[in-house]
Design a protein around this nucleic acid. Structure first.
Lengths: 196, 196
DNA sequence: CGTTTTCTTTTCCGAAATGACAATCAATTA
DNA sequence: TAATTGATTGTCATTTCGGAAAAGAAAACG
């Protein structure tokens, strides 16, 4: 064996720096140099540990979503029965004091990257497919009598509501921070309560 | 007077080239050089007529949305009564064969630009405020008996649904092209039919 | 020790984009 | 015809980024 590997720590450093960069400077502004600066390492370090810029973004997507898988998808799968839906609703429409979570910006930038880069896109496709499925599972636990088609539409609707609202919030549109999405989301949910 | 100004035609050329660039190469790839190439003019031309890159994007935002104002907001204001809502629904959820309209990509890139640049953001804020108001007007025409709060929530909900779905469509998520949003949107509408 | 492995630092090159400036050309009007 | 206004073209310097490679330093292990 040679010198012990710093890869694990360094990669973590770099990923977190990448997140901060995406948040502060957007996708185009997330250059290897800036990530290096933000992480306190040199650009050569970044290249050494994660490769070129495309590699960086792809690894970052994996890193980010594997975190979410534990935090969201995992938590829903772990919760039982009627505990699921409140978790989902809070996650999608948490109306805390922060208008948007820090991650929302990062995610949107990543989506932009995914439109151009297939590897990133695939990561996001599989993640989002799972996430929407989790929403559907939560709905199924709450409304087992509803039709699968209706559940699917509502699940996807909730998801789109959350994504769309996050976009509007990033534009600092006043209407985005008034809890109006949550009202719309509740309306969607009512459909499942009404006709079985 | 000197030589007659070509500003009007040239600007139009440049704006259309900018749209094509945003669509093909994204925000980061929309450089003055590429816009010049796409428009058939020289980079000096672009600089001469629209200024630097930030100026270009701001002028483009104005140009794009003044077009939409005529096409969408204007059309709704012009339609009478119960003709409004179908126009809105078609505009937001047109389920044609194209998974997404050409402009959707451009708009999303512009939103990304608006997050960083305040001048662009202001343009988009005012436009979207008006657009959501138009949706609300259409709902008011169809459901005059519904409560204003409910209408507002549904209007904003429809808008978010459309935005979120457009994002998912750009990621080529299969679920985005199945007409599922439209189903969710119809569910939202039902809320206004039910309790006045 | 010395070898091996990995980390770390440094240097170089090329491409692309921006900003600024200058010079020439063309059309209109006095 | 001359002056003026704006169009058109071209050039230069600077910056930033990305990609690649080389060389040195540090730690484990036999």
């Amino acid at each position: 064996m040679g010198r012990p590997s710093m890869a694990a720590e360094r990669t973590e450093q770099i990923m977190q720096a990448t997140a901060r960069c995406l948040q502060k400077h957007g996708l185009a502004g997330t250059t290897l140099e800036r990530v290096a600066e933000e992480s306190g390492l040199s650009r050569s370090h970044v290249r050494h540990y994660v490769g070129n810029r495309d590699d960086l973004l792809q690894k970052f997507a994996n890193w980010l979503y594997s975190g979410y898988e534990a935090e969201f998808i995992g938590r829903i799968a772990g919760a039982d029965g009627r505990d699921k839906l409140p978790i989902v609703m809070d996650y999608l429409f948490s109306t805390g004091f922060l208008p948007i979570s820090d991650d929302d910006t990062v995610i949107r930038e990543l989506i932009t990257a995914g439109i151009a880069d297939e590897r990133i896109r695939v990561v996001m496709q599989t993640h989002y497919t799972q996430a929407i499925q989790s929403v559907e599972d939560a709905l199924a636990a709450e409304h087992p009598e509803a039709s699968p088609g209706a559940r699917r539409a509502v699940a996807y609707g909730l998801w789109c509501l959350a994504m769309g609202n996050s976009m509007m919030a990033e534009l600092q549109l006043p209407v985005a921070s008034g809890g109006l999405v949550r009202a719309a989301a509740e309306s969607l949910l009512e459909r499942l309560s009404r006709h079985g």
